[in-house]
Each structure stands twice: as C-alpha cells, then as structure tokens.
C-alpha cells in the first residue's frame, strides 16, 4: 500500500468512527432512559401510567394521560396554525418570489430557527398571552393551549417551510412546462401538478415539524400553564378547549425533575420513554415518506 492509500483508509476509519459514535450515543441515551424508567413501569404498570388521569406524585398517583393529551393538542394546534403559513412561505419562495425578494425572505425565515426557544417563551408570555386573554370565556387566563400553539406554530415554521420548499423545487421542471404548455393556468399547475408531485416531501416536512413541536420544552412551560388536567372546553363552543391550560410531556419532566426522587423520578424517565417512542414513530414515518418519490422511475 502506498502512503496515499494508507492515508485514505485512515480517513475512512476516522469517519466511520464518528458515525458509529453518534449511533452509540443515541443507543446509550435510549438504554439509560429506559433503564431508569423500569421501576416506574414495574411498580405503576404501563397501562396505568399511560391511561391514568391523575398525576400527584406526593400521593403516589402517576398517570400521564393528561400530559399526552396536552402534548397532542398543542401539537395539533401548532400544525393547524403553522402548516398553512409554512406552505404559503414555501410556495411563495419557490414559485412566485423574484430572486431579489427570495434572497431576503429566505434568510429571514431561517433566522427564526436560530432564535433560542426561551426567547419565544418570553415573547409568548408578554405578547401572546395577554392577547389571548381578551377572548371572553370564563376562566380564560391567556395561559393555555392556544397561546402555546401560536408560539409553537412560529417555531416549527422554518423547518416545515424549508423542507417543503426543497420538495417543491425538486419537482422536475418538465412537469411544470408540460402543464403550462397544455394551457393550464399557474394556479392549476400549482395545485394539480406541483403540490401533488411534492406531496411526499411536504408530508415529511410536516412530520419533521411535528417532531420538533413534540420535543419543545421551555417555551411551552412559559405559556401553557403547566396544570395537570385533561384539557376541557369551558364554554359551549368546543374550540374553547384550546383556552384550557395543560401540560406537555416535556414540560412534565422539566418542571419536576429538579425535585424528584425515587419512584417520582423514575416516572419522569418513563414520561421520557413515551416521548422518545412518539418522536421515533414520527421520524421513521417521515423517513418512509421521504423514501418514496413517485416520479423517479
């Protein structure tokens, strides 16, 4: 072997090592979290943990259903608010904006991804919460799912918008040209050709955004109220459920881990395992969708 080749193979192994290291770290975190959660699964029972509605560690009651509902609803709210906005951004950037505008708008959106989440939380607490409080429903304090969903929608916007913009751009040019040549309008081309073509990419963008939303912690703690209740509608309008306070799975861990000991601590790790599982399901479904590009035949 010449010196050059030896160097090449050395470099190869260095990179292989880096790759293995990151896998190892993920596996270690998984094993560690799960191991710490075992006492909770054993003593409380998985079913009771997942379906229990009362969380009072002081009284030995550990049910995380309220937190699962909280995380689920706030994520749903963020998607309903954030996805149309993010898709609009993506379509504007890829199809409509002239290069000069694009070169200004795109970095601005990407900048959103760089803002620390505690800043989002602060913004939510002093701006969004007082605004939401103006909605006249009994018991509405502004702290709750709606404020949290709005904050979260802004936080997931850069993820969804940049991944779907990429997906829209990777629809082959000939599709667009073909459609326009057949006499379709720009709008028809967009809704009937380009968006369906980019569908899998857009879906995976949304799922990546969902994963990000599920994992968000500090901003949620600051605006959601952290009450351990299953969200309920306080007025006749079922939508007022979004004015209810709630707690997310991530918030449950972050708020209580400082003080937790024994079974309480283990139950928080079990919350982490549930979160881990949810996010893994999200990400692998995103991967499956990304893997399918139907025009590549």
């Amino acid at each position: 072997m010449t010196g050059k080749k030896r160097l090449e193979s050395a470099v190869k192994y260095i990179f292989l090592f880096s790759a293995l290291m990151s896998i190892l770290i993920v596996v270690m975190i998984g094993i560690f979290t799960f191991r710490e959660a075992i006492p909770a699964f054993r003593e409380i029972g998985i079913i009771k943990l997942l379906t229990g509605t009362v969380w009072r560690p002081g009284q030995g009651q550990y049910g995380i259903l309220a937190m699962i509902a909280g995380s689920g609803l706030v994520t749903l709210g963020a998607v309903v608010i954030g996805v149309p906005l993010a898709l609009g951004c993506a379509i504007f950037l890829s199809e409509i904006a002239p290069p000069a505008v694009r070169s200004f708008v795109r970095p601005s959106i990407e900048l959103l991804a760089g803002i620390p989440s505690v800043v989002y939380g602060l913004f939510g607490m002093v701006v969004i919460v007082p605004l939401v409080r103006n909605i006249d429903v009994p018991g509405n304090t502004g702290f709750g799912l709606l404020s949290a969903s709005i904050v979260l929608a802004v936080m997931i916007l850069p993820t969804i918008s940049s991944v779907s913009e990429y997906a829209i751009r990777s629809v082959p040019k000939r599709f667009r040209e073909g459609s326009l040549a057949m006499g379709a309008t720009k709008w028809e081309t967009m809704t009937k050709v380009i968006l369906p073509g980019a569908r899998s990419g857009i879906m995976s963008a949304i799922i990546l955004g969902l994963g990000r939303a599920l994992g968000e912690t500090i901003a949620m703690i600051m605006v959601i109220g952290n009450s351990v209740i299953i969200p309920f509608a306080a007025s006749d309008n079922p939508l007022s459920i979004f004015l209810s306070r709630a707690r997310t799975l991530t918030g449950n861990i972050a708020v209580e881990i400082n003080y937790a000991t024994g079974l309480h601590e283990s139950a928080l790790f079990a919350t982490g395992v549930v979160l881990f599982a949810l996010i893994m399901i999200m990400n692998s479904s995103a991967r499956m969708l990304i893997g399918r590009k139907k025009w590549e035949k």
């Binding site: 304090t141 702290f143 109220g225 009450s227 209740i229 708020v255 400082n258």
Partner: peptide
C-alpha cells in the same frame, strides 16, 4: 386544585 397554573 389540579386547575392551578403551576410555575417552576
């Protein structure tokens, strides 16, 4: 009450 806002 479970309805309380909890802050850390």
């Amino acid at each position: 009450t479970g309805n309380a806002i909890l802050q850390p």
